[in-house]
Design a protein around this nucleic acid. Structure first.
Lengths: 195, 195, 195, 195
DNA sequence: CGATAAACGAGACGGTACGTCCAGTCTTCCA
DNA sequence: TGGAAGACTGGACGTACCGTCTCGTTTATCG
């Protein structure tokens, strides 16, 4: 096993790292994803452009990390019912997507990810991974309770929930109502219940 | 009131109009939405840039019209059951979204629409309008059959269906399976059925 | 014969052309050749960088045209003696080389020309062409007067005179004295006289 | 007076010194002066950039030392005639200037020296110093022989000879002919002879 | 002998300029 | 007047160097 190779040369400055992420978040929130250029992020962070490109290969990767890596560590909900669990999951998803920076970044960010085959693969494997983990756990419990049967298509349900929230909030620009999570959970939950 | 105003001077050339739309469709399909510039569209159409800007105010409007105005005139399905009708609607939607030009254009196009308040309003009023009309009719019939109750939130269901298809095809890049429409219709249809 | 081909499209703006040349001359005089960037020239001229690159392919070409194209149209001197004619030619050369913009530009400019094979050819054919024409005429008259013989190596003499002036003024940075032209003319003139 | 002060700390590595000079010479010969960056020299020498900057303050100083410090120790010629001595001096100068590394470096190197007041002073005091010493000696002998008179302007003759060779070889790119030294010596020698 | 100090390789740092591309507008000639 | 051509200003792109700095490591002298 290769050890992480002796780290030679001057180590990267973590203050610069954080300053860039903060600047990216602010800039996207202020002027939008399309108008936020890497040069402007670097300038606001008080950093050279190379220092940005050394860490991220483009705007999409940078903004993704800046906006969607607060690792919310939200515990998988366990309300006792499938619909209740889905509602809780959706509430977290809605909150994440409707945060100012996220709402400003999402459409352009997803477009850039979708346009690049290498990044496209990361949409499922990183973007949706936490949600999927939660969803799998919730389904396992529901199967044990007999609420649903084991061969539910988790990926399809995940795309449906994420797509619904993204379209509703990110594109159509609707201010998410209090009941949104419950309403979506009701539709999808009942749609996959046994019987 | 001004009558349609005596069309003074040389009338616009409809061949140019069609050439531009065709060039836009080809270019988006070939190089993607982001890399398709207005200058390149004009050059491929054998047209000056101004001739494009005189008719459309930007890439988003142009590509929207080029890719999504084949007026599919598809009649509202009437299969006798809510799930059947939804399946038919979804099949049309999936076919539309997975056409080469549409798949290439959608993410970037929606991002540009979402970023511009003026265009954002048109996502619902134009993009989704035909689908919504069909959905309303289908629901009316389902209410008459007693399959569902009258206060279904059409817009929410519409966002869910469109979002699911967009995420599945446009972003994650999944080749749409034969059963996709039926599977989605089953989930959502059962989710809004009475009882 | 191809006519200059119908000049289609918007013609180039001669005001921009002149503004760029003026800005280049000023900037070279102010900050020196090395520190004068094309971007700075464009900015000072109130012009986009493309407008510069559309006309000149690099800093060397631009500065050459800006600094050395005042077509001095100085008539070939005819003082009656070889040494007198050479003195007059050298006075013109010294005046040209010691103008502020020229003195600031020359070393770097010649270095850039020398480094590029394509430009290197132009040093003789353009830079030194007017001086060479004058020198040839002066020699013809001297031959007729019997002062020198016909097989003088004009190019070598030209390199010697230009090199001497360039080294003295351009490199060593000596303020050219009043007698410089006469002194050089005396050395070189006597060196090529018959007997 | 401070003695050379006990040299504390690790002494400089003379292998690195030589490796840098060799790398600089190679690089200038291979890619030219302008394209030879300090970073590239350091990399080729297997050395950190600081190790270069610790010894030389810039590319000009480094390349000057790399290319023009073979201290050729050529003895002042003594052929018995002014023209003969000049020919010998010029042959040495031509050989020095037309060596591959020197020819590649000269124009850019002189431009950098000329652009920096501090370095400009060194052109005469270092670059031309050996040649000047020889020239002075040659002139002293010529005066003793009665070939020329004592108030010859050595500096001007030096600039003329060096300028002629530089222009002929360095800029115009002429392959130096066998007779070049003799021809130049003939012109300048006769030009400063008594009578 | 251990402390101290400088040089070393590597490479990250804030900057500046590069030359290209595109946006959206303007200006010319031709039909 | 419409249209093709193409020049216009402005600005972002991603790359390359600049000269400085900060690491961990090595090699010397000095107390």
């Amino acid at each position: 096993m290769m050890p992480p190779s002796a780290p030679r040369g001057r180590p990267r400055d973590s203050r610069a790292h954080r300053a860039i992420l903060a600047a990216a978040t602010e800039l996207v929130t202020d002027v939008g994803y399309a108008a936020a250029s890497i040069g402007a992020v670097a300038a606001r962070a008080g950093v050279g452009k190379d220092t940005v490109y050394r860490r991220w290969s483009g705007k999409a990767e940078l903004v993704y990390e800046a906006v969607f890596t607060e690792a919310e560590a939200c515990p998988v909900p366990d309300t006792g019912s499938l619909t209740g669990d889905l509602t809780a999951l959706l509430e977290a998803l809605i909150q994440e997507f409707s945060a100012p920076a996220a709402a400003a970044a999402l459409p352009g960010l997803l477009a850039d990810f979708a346009a690049n085959p290498e990044l496209q693969a990361r949409i499922r494997s990183e973007f949706l991974a936490p949600a999927k983990d939660g969803l799998v756990t919730v389904f396992e419990r529901a199967v044990q309770r007999g609420e649903t049967d084991p061969n539910v298509q988790v990926d399809l349900v995940l795309d449906t929930l994420a797509g619904a929230v993204f379209f509703h909030i990110g594109l159509v620009g609707v201010q998410p109502s209090q009941q949104l999570a419950a309403q979506l959970a009701a539709i999808v939950g009942r749609g996959i219940e046994t019987r």
